[in-house]
Amino acid sequence: MNARVTRRVIRGVAIAAIVISVLSVLLVVAAWRNDHTIESDMGTATGEVLSAGSLRSAISFVTPDGVTHNPELGVLYPTRLTVGQLIDVQYARSDPDLVRVAGRDASVAIVPALSVIVVTWLIAGPVIWYLRRRWANEPGVSRNFASS
């Protein structure tokens, strides 16, 4: 690889790692925002789990006005749910499709987001280090990374 290509690959890897890290942080911020929306206008109900998965679980619940809701995007924080299980849910009365499992909040998103960030940099860091070393050892290349 010539110096120009190596430099572009290094920048590409760094930019990809930064983007993944920022998206992980934004995921936690969005979860916190959803929690804030629910807590500012909270309704509670008992819901039934219609389908269960680690990333998405479908539920059905009835609000006090007698309307049955089946949120298209499922319930927030769906881990450890089983089909047919009855669960307490908290929802935003202004938007009953925004619903979470009672007792769970954005804090459950922190560990997965941090894990993604750590793994991303555990991969990107050594790749960047290797490419910088390789680039610096090419004939006629300045050893100052910032000047290129």
Rank of each mutant, 00 (worst) to 15 (best):
3 A>T: 05
74 G>R: 05
112 P>I: 10
109 A>L: 06
27 L>I: 07
132 R>L: 05
46 T>W: 11
5 V>E: 09
11 R>L: 14
28 V>Y: 03
70 N>V: 15
60 S>Q: 15
52 A>N: 14
106 A>N: 04
75 V>R: 01
21 S>D: 05
30 A>D: 15
53 G>L: 12
123 I>A: 11
94 S>I: 01
83 V>W: 11
82 T>Q: 13
33 R>N: 09
13 V>D: 04
67 V>C: 01
18 I>G: 04
11 R>S: 12
52 A>K: 13
99 V>A: 06
89 V>W: 01
6 T>L: 12
14 A>G: 09
101 V>R: 09
125 G>Q: 04
128 I>M: 01
80 R>F: 13
18 I>H: 02
129 W>D: 12
107 S>G: 08
111 V>T: 12
41 D>R: 03
103 G>W: 05
60 S>R: 15
44 T>I: 08
21 S>P: 05
126 P>L: 03
106 A>Q: 01
134 R>N: 08
67 V>T: 15
88 D>C: 02
83 V>K: 15
40 S>E: 06
22 V>D: 00
147 S>Q: 03
54 S>T: 14
89 V>Y: 00
101 V>S: 01
68 T>I: 15
9 V>P: 04
12 G>L: 08
139 P>H: 09
2 N>M: 06
109 A>E: 10
112 P>L: 14
26 L>W: 07
93 R>N: 08
47 G>N: 03
10 I>A: 00
8 R>K: 10
61 F>V: 10
43 G>H: 10
45 A>K: 08
123 I>D: 07
88 D>S: 12
21 S>A: 14
42 M>L: 12
121 W>P: 04
27 L>T: 12
120 T>H: 04
8 R>Y: 06
78 P>I: 13
120 T>N: 04
37 T>I: 11
78 P>N: 13
